[in-house]
């Protein structure tokens, strides 16, 4: 469990997000707005999110659809431009890298793995070319023999055969394709991988293979992961730190042990209550009420208050501020005021 201790050590973070926001303008066209007298509509996909990841750690973001976890991933790798806030990678503000050369030097150090291995590989390219592309783009390729040698190494590293480079993506199963995606991500020797639901499209036995592979790679080459998932059990298995998001805001950050044993945000408790009980303890569960509201028109104050059993007047009007502790964070008025009842969830052994 030594890697879990890194969370509290004073080592500088590899990635820091500070007050990161991304708003999307989802208004109708100017003409329609004028005629129908509609105001502008802004979707706050990510609203003031801060967290940091230490080198060699896995930070997981969990939440339901529309909570903004994938938008955070895209902001981090630069597929979206933030509306506000800062992203610092290894001490450098990413927005400061203005020249192409600076940008490339920085971007070579991170890569992304996407959810759908059927959509993220070009069907007209041989696997060899798919994996070699990042090396070509960043000018890491020497001669073509060196390139082929490196591609073969990568294929073997992710558990495929060197001969597979000659094949096309359709000749592989979903799990093998995800291995190809991982090999491609590793080809530019990154330190940091952003994984957006990397196993959600896979069967459980294949998911286990990919999760094991990702853990092996982390141990062998010291990768740092931002791991996004909606599956709490997967997150418990892979993460060193977990961040729970709801409607664009961060509710709670904690280590997996703390989060599942002593969840401090009512939304985290709701999520934990929904995990199907494979241990068959037969425990009675609180029926979960309500659904995630429309993010274009989120509730006032704490956006969770309409579903929260502990909500009071303050929750309806005031956005809760993050309360930091030694190992985590929680943004909840009830937690701040000590109105939080003891967790009812069965503590995992």
């Amino acid at each position: 469990m030594s890697d879990r201790l890194i969370a509290t050590s004073p080592e500088p973070a590899l990635l820091e997000l500070e007050n990161l926001s991304k708003y999307f303008d989802v208004s109708k066209s100017l003409l329609n707005r004028t005629i129908e007298r509609l105001p502008k509509q802004i979707l706050k996909a990510v609203d003031g999110v801060s967290f940091s990841i230490k080198p060699g750690q896995t930070f997981s973001l969990v939440g339901e659809s529309g909570c903004g976890k994938s938008t955070v991933a895209k902001l981090v790798v630069g597929l979206h431009k933030p509306t506000g806030g800062q992203i610092r990678f290894d001490g450098t503000n990413v927005a400061d890298a203005k020249s192409i050369a600076q940008n490339a030097a920085l971007r070579r150090r991170w890569q992304m793995i996407f959810q759908d291995p059927y959509a993220s590989l070009n069907p007209r390219w041989r696997v060899h070319d798919i994996i070699a592309e990042p090396m070509r783009v960043f000018g890491l390729a020497g001669s073509s023999t060196e390139l082929s040698k490196r591609v073969s190494e990568l294929l073997e590293q992710v558990g495929l055969s060197a001969m597979d480079g000659e094949k096309y993506p359709h000749e592989f199963s979903g799990g093998q394709r995800q291995r190809v995606s991982i090999a491609r991500a590793l080809s530019s020797n990154p330190e940091f991988l952003v994984c957006d639901e990397p196993t959600s499209a896979l069967d459980v036995s294949v998911q286990a293979q990919i999760l094991n592979l990702m853990k092996d790679l982390q141990r062998d080459i010291g990768l740092t992961y931002l791991f996004i998932s909606h599956n709490l059990a997967v997150v418990y298995h892979v993460a060193d730190m977990i961040g729970v998001m709801y409607l664009g805001r961060m509710c709670e950050i904690a280590t997996p042990q703390d989060l599942f044993r002593n969840p401090r945000h009512p939304y985290t408790r709701l999520l934990i209550d929904t995990i199907p009980d494979l241990e068959m303890t037969g425990k009675a569960r609180e029926p979960v009420a309500g659904e995630v509201p429309n993010p274009i028109n989120p509730p006032s104050g704490c956006s969770f208050h309409p579903r929260c059993p502990l909500a009071n007047d303050r929750c309806k009007s005031e956005i809760p501020k993050p309360i930091h502790s030694a190992t985590g964070m929680v943004a909840c008025h009830a937690a701040e005021e000590g109105r939080l009842p003891a967790p009812q969830t069965v503590a995992p052994a």
Partner: peptide
């Protein structure tokens, strides 16, 4: 054994 379970601390599935 391949299913990750909350509370089961294992290094590999």
């Amino acid at each position: 054994g391949a299913i990750p379970i909350v509370g089961r601390d294992i290094e590999r599935l």
